[in-house]
Design a protein around this nucleic acid. Structure first.
Lengths: 334, 334
DNA sequence: TTGTACGCGTTATCAG
DNA sequence: CTGATAACGCGTACAA
């Protein structure tokens, strides 16, 4: 016999069962002042007996003070977004705020859809991590006042990020001092708004008197593999590749392997994000730590702060990226 | 000058601007019958001009027919859950259903919390992927009638899974025929409900006249590394380890490497999930493909079907797991 | 085809 | 501390 589809129990039911008014039940469940501890416990007991669970949908509609954050994550396959989620989640939870998630894809085709879903769910603030949309589009869609940009600086908008210009510089300098001169960069497609890593690379290359060589691909392992293959296959191939993130770097390593090139003997590779896999001996990827967990925490804090201070100054938190040296980049052999 | 915090525009505003009633606006936006195409377009134009966006919170509260699915994902660091998400998301989207996400952690400490959040958000059906809770707890919390178990069979509950008993058997047989006799299994902690891989391993080992050796750890790289180290460090160590998932398998490989053991020469390792990283040359992990994307799709379809057929027979979809042979498991050298 | 009125489950205000 | 009563924004018969 299938479980009988139980009737939805509401606050009124709890109120009736506890012999009090519905307002009191609301007060009791929200944990605000207005009930004696005794009555409160009595009400909660009645609720438990009825298996009552507050309806957050109704609650969010009725509440005018309820803080809810919408978090956009570009790519669930990239562990850096798990770190960001953990940071945001921890802060949100301990603040008792509501968190709603939206997920995109690396090509950026779902950015708009996911962001609109968050807006439709009436997120008071939208935290955008990894969005492909340009600064302008982002602001037009979400509104500069409801947006917190995570891991990317957007001028005029609350931003919490690690300095990508500096991070790219760390990488180029590292490779340069190892002796590399032909250093290629695997960047994300140029249509989007995440341009600082590439810009940092190009600026530093020129400062060092070197010629930038940029190829682009969406930041996945597969796409990186596809573009790295011709890059490494031809003559005059680079001696080092700086990839936009660790997943792409792994794609480069894979491409090199398939071409019979050894890493790091024949090719040095550097990634970005310092994901957990980079530390494995089998991988040993030199990378840049952008402190994603902290980015998550700080951006959630910024969002909550913004709700309290609508007219406060634009938040601009810049963390210092850290180069993590491993075995995938050494002095060139030739 | 900061963007002026625009007043929330509602259907009434759109109705006023378009010179029609609010009901008509509702009808127009939902795309149901009841408006002339002409009027409809006129209304939508007015909505665009006002930058109106339907409030899904209010919509979900008012609607009695709205289908919304709640998806629980255990671990954002495990790519298998990204596959499941993609499958669920695709089906949900094309069905026009609402999808809300809840995220747990590998220790299972957040299972209850995340599931309750989904319930509080009034998900009509909850899809649970990777939940640590036991069958009994899961049913008690969510209700057998609102639950779809993903990647795990729960008797009496709609379940979409790949046969873990068979998958484990595939692995043991593979290792056995390669010549291994001391095959250890790295399982998830015994308190939870995901027991089939371990059971399949133990049954098959006994059938083959071998002695099962099980160690447990939460399914993360770090935890696997921690328990694999003593396992591989002592005398009489196994010649092969079958890990509960790919992340754990990577932890085993890492532990082996730190102990100076070569994979597969000194130790064979097999994972589970056939995650993207397993295919890399630098990893080359033999694993079991459980068709996670399909699991996602099928479970979402099951959930939507259940909404239409509340009294329908219990869904039981069992896919056949597939062994993917790579370089991490070979004949034992000794 | 269009408009009216009631309800969804809470929150919040304001007298008792 | 308690209990009516109006929002919250929208869905949905039902009537026009």
């Amino acid at each position: 016999m299938p479980e009988t589809s139980r009737p939805r129990v509401t606050m009124d039911d709890v109120a009736a069962a506890a012999g009090v008014s519905r307002s009191l039940v609301s007060i009791a469940y929200r944990g605000v002042a207005g009930v004696s501890d005794e009555t409160r416990e009595h009400i909660l007991a009645a609720g438990r007996a009825l298996r009552y669970r507050p309806n957050t949908v109704a609650s969010r509609l009725a509440s005018r003070t309820g803080r809810s954050l919408g978090l956009f994550l570009l790519d669930l396959r990239n562990p850096v977004f798990a770190d960001i989620f953990d940071g945001v989640s921890a802060v949100t939870e301990e603040a008792g705020a509501h968190l709603v998630l939206g997920v995109g894809d690396t090509a950026g085709t779902r950015d708009r859809l996911a962001l609109e879903t968050l807006l439709g769910a009436r997120a008071d603030v939208v935290l955008a991590a990894g969005a492909v949309l340009s600064d302008r589009e982002l602001i037009a869609l979400v509104g500069a006042d409801r947006l917190v940009s995570v891991a990317r600086r957007v001028p005029g908008v609350d931003s919490v990020y690690a300095d990508d210009l500096a991070g790219a510089r760390l990488v180029v300098d590292h490779l340069y001092f190892l002796g590399h001169r032909r250093i290629a960069h695997l960047a994300v497609p140029p249509t989007d708004g995440r341009t600082d890593r590439r810009a940092g690379y190009e600026v530093r290359m020129r400062e060092l008197g070197l010629t930038p060589q940029v190829v682009t691909a969406v930041p996945t392992l597969e796409a990186a593999l596809a573009v790295a293959t011709p890059l490494l296959g031809g003559p005059g191939r680079p001696t080092a590749v700086f990839a936009n993130n660790d997943l792409a770097a792994l794609g480069v390593v894979e491409a090199a392997g398939r071409l019979g090139l050894r890493v790091p003997d024949d090719l040095s590779v550097v990634g970005y994000d310092d994901s957990p896999l980079s530390g494995l001996r089998a991988v040993g990827l030199t990378s840049v730590d952008q402190h994603a967990l902290d980015l998550g925490r700080r951006s959630a804090e910024a969002a909550l702060w913004r709700l309290e201070n609508p007219a406060g100054e634009v938040v601009d938190v810049s963390l210092s990226p850290r180069l993590v040296v491993r075995s995938s980049a050494t002095a060139p052999s030739s």
